[in-house]
Design a protein around this nucleic acid. Structure first.
Lengths: 218, 218
DNA sequence: ACAAATATTTAGTTTTGTCTAAAATTATTT
DNA sequence: AAATAATTTTAGACAAAACTAAATATTTGT
């Protein structure tokens, strides 16, 4: 696969939401920041190679082979993201562009060893699961922290309320995007939670918990 | 710079032995595993961009700008080599191809942070110096171990005698390519040496020392 | 010094991935 | 159910990087 082919495959994969839904030419063009006519050209090539199912005017979907390639691509991307954030102290916004380049490096050993170097992570810093070498992908769901069952853990991926006071609270309590949160116990009286975050145990109100999104691996 | 341009620049740099000697079209073609006519095409392009000095039929050399690019390329290549060998447990022969790909990733921060992650190494696993961010390059020389002055250290890069008995000796004494050797003391009587290698101190005969090449940073 | 050998360049194609403009198909609206 | 709008495809071009074959320079051997 060429660099460009790999990018198209990943775009089709993501637009199909990981499921194998059919994707429109226009959608791919928009995602790839290119023209629909270029997309048609490339899709034909991918179709000839057995990577996508294509019926003119009806859209594309990945074949099983195509999905395998997409998942391997996603695996590489997410492992590199973990590497950049954990080992090279990149920040969230700096990671994507570089991972986009790194994911095209061709070496099976490189990815296997990188995986090992990182301690075989299961999710990337956005809480999205990392496909296994064989292409198995765990499902994740996004839940408000107050709906997360006791004993479960997830990664903090967003806020419902983005008002300055709330963000200030998070900052003061050292809660940031990407942090892993484990729900320890729930206070029946007021619905407040005891959680563990970065080795420390804290107590937060239901009001806080109902404004924080976690991503949970099932 | 495109991927291909960067490869040509590096080839011209290496053929010019790091010095700015003029290089023939044929030599570049051979190095790049391509045809001389392709080289002429590319050289013209690089000349237009101010990367090389080119006079038809007379060969090419890098401009100052071209040399800067080449050194930055070499820096990236060698840092990635260190990473692959030290962090990902690659072996010598597996490193090159992958580093060749990695060196094309475009991100200044990536290289700076990688450098830091590796502890700012001064030489790569072959004993070759890693250019600084500003493009400064230390000189190295290859010497037989018995000619290395006391107190100096270098990296084991080759053998003069490659007979099985000698290689077996090295193996038994846990001396391998890439190891750093420090010369501690010389026995006047027989020229034998006390050296430090991988935290241990050993004693080797002059005969051994005169068959091992070290690369030394001046 | 000049013919033969070698090295280099030019001219004309090819492939990959892109583009624009025009044609064809599908969807939407009244 | 037409007419119009939107989407998608086709046709033809272009740039980058390579190639082959032919032409041109340079070097070498005698």
């Amino acid at each position: 696969m060429t660099l460009s082919e790999e990018d198209y495959i990943k775009a089709i994969y993501h637009l199909g939401k990981g499921e194998n839904s059919t994707v429109s030419t226009n959608a791919v063009a928009y995602q790839m920041e290119t023209k629909p006519s270029s997309v048609t050209d490339m899709i034909k090539k991918l179709s000839d190679k057995g990577v996508v199912n294509y019926r003119p005017y009806k859209g594309v979907s990945l074949t099983e082979y195509g999905q395998k390639i997409a998942l391997s691509q996603v695996r590489k991307h997410r492992l590199w993201e973990v590497f950049l954030l954990e080992k090279l102290d990149f920040s969230w916004d700096e990671v994507h562009d570089v991972a986009e380049q790194l994911e095209h490096i061709k070496s099976e050993k490189l990815i296997d060893q990188l995986d090992k170097h990182l301690g075989f992570p299961e999710v990337d810093p956005h809480g999205d699961p990392i496909p296994s070498k064989k292409g198995e992908l765990k499902k994740t769901i996004k839940k408000l922290l107050n709906e997360v069952p006791i004993g479960a853990s997830g990664i903090c991926v967003g806020v419902k309320d983005s008002s300055p006071p709330f963000l200030k609270f998070l900052d003061r309590n050292n809660i940031a995007l990407g942090d892993t949160i484990l729900v320890l116990e729930k206070e029946e009286f007021d619905g407040s939670l005891y959680i563990r975050i970065k080795e420390s145990k804290i107590h937060i109100s239901d009001q806080i918990a109902s404004n924080l999104y976690l991503k949970i691996t099932e």
